[in-house]
Amino acid sequence: MEFVPEKGKRPPPVDCTSLILPALSIGNVGQLAVDLLISTWRAERVGYLDDPNVLPCVGNDPYSPVPSGDLALPLEAYVSGSNGPMLIQQRSPIVKGMMIEFAKNLAEFAASSGKKDVVILSGLDFGRWQRIDTSGGSQTYYLSSVNSDGYDDRCEKFGWKRLPEYNPDQKSWNYLRASAEGTSCVEEGFPGEDDLEEEDYYPSLPFSALFSFFKAKGLNVTCLLCYCSEGDNIPDSFHLAEASCKLFGIRPTGEGDGWLIPYSWQTVYGPPPDVSIF
């Protein structure tokens, strides 16, 4: 993975040791949350990441009210201020079967660029939620590298719950850990889509590979997760963005409630229906 600095922009400050990024999953909640953070924190794009395992794509600037011709690419790096975390936005999926290789490359980039703390944002399939309690609204789940069982006192103080389905001794989690540590001697690789069992669902998601490889590099990793369904996932993205702010002790700086909505969200679901059809 190669970091390509933005022309005419200052490089990321050396004391920028925190990283926030999405893990692609149901509803694209992680990507929407990163969009919201970039817009609200008025983060500046400082470069691009080039990796052969990410499908190519190109688009217009999603944060400017007047398109200036700046192109948006698959992996972009943003920085907010001199002490803010770096944010990586991923706009296209990983080449099928290459998630582990991508996670390896991204973890190597993070470690070599001096990152110490990593936050991964992702959605989970609401249909697999075993203990449903919506009385308090959306619930934040987490997975942390602080302890081997994924538990973190700091996250618990925020009222978040450790992902109960996390089992570091399960075979697929073991495979990810061994692959990340370079000690894999497993004869069988990770199960394919058609061979996944119920217990393989969570380790098969992108956040799990990223978590395993970042952790193997000695970085402090926290996954912030929420259950959702396909559809209008903007409320879920606010939920994860707010959790990220709590974790870093940063308050939203936009107007009103503090959030600055990205301009690209105005066309996320297209124009309203023609009223004549009713």
Rank of each mutant, 00 (worst) to 15 (best):
K7Q: 13
P11G: 10
V14A: 15
L21M: 15
P22T: 14
P22F: 12
A23N: 13
A33M: 13
L37D: 03
T40I: 04
R42H: 11
A43I: 13
Y48A: 04
Y48N: 03
Y48P: 01
D50P: 00
C57G: 15
S64K: 13
V66W: 02
G69I: 11
L75K: 06
Y78N: 01
G81D: 06
G84K: 09
I88P: 02
R91L: 12
S92A: 15
P93R: 13
I94K: 01
V95E: 11
M99H: 02
I100H: 09
A103N: 03
N105S: 15
L106V: 05
F109A: 06
F109L: 15
S112I: 07
G114S: 14
V118N: 13
I120G: 11
L121E: 11
S122F: 11
D125E: 10
F126D: 11
G127R: 11
W129Y: 08
S135H: 03
G136N: 11
T140K: 04
L143N: 08
S144L: 08
V146N: 05
D149K: 00
Y151T: 01
K157P: 00
F158M: 03
L163T: 03
N167E: 06
D169Y: 07
N174M: 11
S184E: 07
C185F: 09
V186F: 14
D195V: 02
E197C: 01
Y202F: 15
Y202A: 09
P203D: 10
L205Y: 03
F207A: 09
S212R: 07
F213N: 05
L219Y: 12
N220E: 14
C223T: 02
C228R: 00
S229Q: 01
G231P: 03
G231W: 05
P235M: 01
L240D: 03
A243F: 09
C245A: 13
F248M: 13
T253F: 00
E255I: 06
E255P: 01
G256L: 04
G256R: 09
G258S: 06
P262S: 02
Y263R: 06
S264T: 08
W265A: 04
Q266F: 02
Q266P: 00
V268A: 07
Y269L: 11
D274I: 07
D274N: 15
S276I: 04
